[in-house]
Design a protein around this nucleic acid. Structure first.
Lengths: 219, 219
DNA sequence: GCCGGTATGTGACTAAGTCACGTTCAATCA
DNA sequence: TGATTGAACGTGACTTAGTCACATACCGGC
C-alpha cells in the first residue's frame, strides 16, 4: 500500500527498497480541483511535486493581464519547474495551474535532494526532462519573436484537432496558448472562416479544410 | 601542469585526485577567434565545453535573418546548452558564437557523463546553472511577449552603460539583443535623442540623462 | 421568456515589423 | 589627397499586431 504511486514514475520505479520506503513514508498524496494555483511566481519551492493524475499548465502572466502557456505537466511527470527551483535555490518564475482535478505526491525538499544524490537513474530522468524543457522554451522564444500569429494559430489548431475536426476552445484560451490578445485571435479566426477553412460557434471550432491550415502552419 | 585549468571551475576544483587526472588526460584545450560558431542548431553535442577565457553569445536565429540573444557564457562557466543536450541526448536548439577570442577545455561526452555521475559537487553546479538559465529564458519570454520595445531598449541601455556614459554598440547589435528589427531600434533611439536623453554617433551612444531612461526601464 | 455572465464582434487607434531605398561616415588605397 | 567602398544609419510607405472601449450574441438557469 505504501509504495503504490512510486511505480508510475520512470526513474523512481526501479529504486532500491529502502528508498522506496523512505519516500513512501515521507511523501504525501494530495488532490486539488481544477484552476488551483499549484505554484506562483516569487514563491519558494518547499516540496518536490510528482504529478499522479491530471495536467498542470505552466504559464507566464504579465502585469497587464496577458498570459502565455509555456508547457504542460502530464500525469507521470515530475514538476521540473519545482525541481529546478529546489536545486538552484530559487523562487518560482512562472505559474502552475491545475487544468483538471489533479492528484500529486509531494515530498519535502531535503528528501528530494537526498534522492537526487543517491539515485543516478532518477537524476538522469530529471536532467533529461529539464533539458527538453530548455529546448522547448527556446523554441517558444523563436515562435513568439519571429513567427506570425496566423501561422502560429494554424499550428495550434492543427495540433488541437488531433484526428477529430471539432475543437472545444474559446478565443481567449487560444490567445493564452499563443501569448497574444483575444481580439487578434478572433480576427484571424474570422479570416480562416472567410476562407472556409473553419466554421465557428460559441466555444468550438470546426475544421472544414485541414489541408490549407496545415500548409499555412508550415510556413 | 596537467591540472591547471580545472582549478578555475567551481564544482571541479574540489574534485578527487584521480578524477582530476582523468579529466586532464582526456580533455583538450582549444582556442578560437571571435565570430567562431561554437555550436549550431541541429548539430549533435559530442563534447562537453568548459569556457576558460572569453565569452560566448547564445542566440536564436530565424529563417528571415532576425536574431535574439538568449544569454552569454562567461569564462569559468560550463556550457549549459551542451550539458543539457548531452544529458537529454538532443541536438542543439540554439547557436553559440564566440564574442571574443575564446579558450575552452573540451571533454568527450562519455567522460562528462561519468564525471556527472561521480561528482555530486559538479552535478549540483551544473544543475543550478541549468535552473538559472531556465528562469532567465522564462524572463525573456515575458519580455518579448509583453513588454514594449522602448522600455526594453531603455533597460538594455542602462545595463550596458554600467557606470560609464558611453556605449559602443550599433543599432543592429541592440536589435539582436532585443530580438527586434534594426529600424525599430533606430527610431526608438531617435525618440530618445529628441528628448535629449542620449546623443548618438556612428557606433556609439552617449547617455545624457540617465534618470528618465532608468524610469522608463522600470515601467 | 427573461437575465446575467461569458463569448464574440468591431472600429479606431497605437505600436511594431517589413521593405526598399537613400544618405552618411570612416577606413583604405591609388 | 581625393576616390572608393562597405558598414551604419535615416526614412517613407506599408502591413501586421496589440490596445481600448464598446456593442452583440449566445446559453443555461430561473
Amino acid at each position: 500500500m505504501s509504495q503504490s504511486w512510486i511505480d508510475q514514475f520512470e526513474g523512481l520505479n526501479q529504486l532500491e527498497g529502502e528508498w522506496r520506503d523512505t519516500i513512501s513514508r515521507k511523501s504525501k498524496v494530495v488532490s486539488f480541483p481544477p484552476e488551483t494555483v499549484v505554484f506562483a511566481p516569487g514563491k519558494p519551492a518547499d516540496n518536490m511535486i510528482f504529478l499522479l493524475d491530471g495536467t498542470v499548465r505552466v504559464q507566464q502572466v504579465s502585469e497587464n493581464g496577458r498570459e502565455i502557456v509555456l508547457y504542460r505537466i502530464e500525469a507521470g511527470e515530475s514538476c521540473i519547474m519545482t525541481a529546478s527551483c529546489i536545486i538552484g535555490d530559487q523562487h518560482y518564475s512562472a505559474e502552475g495551474v491545475a487544468e483538471t482535478v489533479i492528484e500529486a505526491a509531494i515530498i519535502p525538499k531535503p528528501v528530494f535532494e537526498e534522492l537526487l544524490g543517491s539515485s543516478s537513474r532518477y537524476r538522469n530522468f530529471i536532467f533529461s526532462t529539464v533539458s527538453s524543457r530548455l529546448a522547448e522554451l527556446m523554441h517558444i522564444i523563436n515562435e513568439i519573436a519571429f513567427r506570425r500569429v496566423d501561422i502560429r494559430l494554424a499550428q495550434k489548431l492543427v495540433s488541437l484537432a488531433k484526428g477529430s475536426d471539432e475543437i472545444m476552445v474559446t478565443h481567449q484560451q487560444l490567445a493564452i496558448e499563443l501569448g497574444t490578445a483575444r481580439e487578434v485571435v478572433s480576427r484571424q479566426l474570422q479570416e480562416f472562416q472567410r476562407r472556409e477553412w473553419i466554421s465557428q460557434s460559441r466555444g468550438t471550432i470546426r475544421i472544414l479544410k485541414l489541408r490549407p491550415l496545415t500548409e499555412l502552419s508550415l510556413d
